[in-house]
Simulated scan of single mutants.
Amino acid sequence: MKTQWNLFIAFFRVGMLGFGGGPASIPLIQKEVVGKYKWMKDDDFGDLLALANTLPGPIATKMAGYIGYRVTGIGGMINAVFATVVPTIVLMIILLTTISSIKEFDWVQGMTAAVVPVVGMMLAVLTWQFINKAGKGLGWGRALVFGVVVFILLQFAGVHPAIIIAALLAAALLIRDKPGHNARQKEDDTE
Rank of each mutant, 00 (worst) to 15 (best):
T112N: 11
E104F: 07
I93T: 12
T127E: 00
T88G: 13
V119C: 06
A113Y: 05
W107V: 15
I99Q: 08
A134G: 07
V119K: 06
V86L: 15
V71Q: 09
Y66W: 14
V85Y: 04
V116M: 10
A134N: 00
W107T: 11
T98K: 12
M121F: 10
A134K: 00
G141Q: 10
T127D: 00
T97R: 14
I78A: 09
G110D: 04
S101P: 01
A113W: 02
T127M: 08
A83Q: 05
I94W: 09
M122N: 08
P117L: 06
G139N: 03
G120E: 08
T88I: 11
M121A: 14
K133V: 06
K136H: 14
K103R: 15
K133M: 10
I67Q: 03
W128G: 00
T98Q: 13
D106E: 12
A80Y: 02
G110I: 02
I67S: 03
S100C: 04
T88Q: 06
W140A: 09
V116C: 04
T112W: 06
I78Y: 04
E104W: 04
N132R: 13
G135Y: 01
V81I: 11
V71D: 05
T84A: 11
I89V: 13
G137N: 10
L95P: 09
Y69I: 00
G135T: 00
V71E: 09
G110N: 11
L126F: 03
I94M: 11
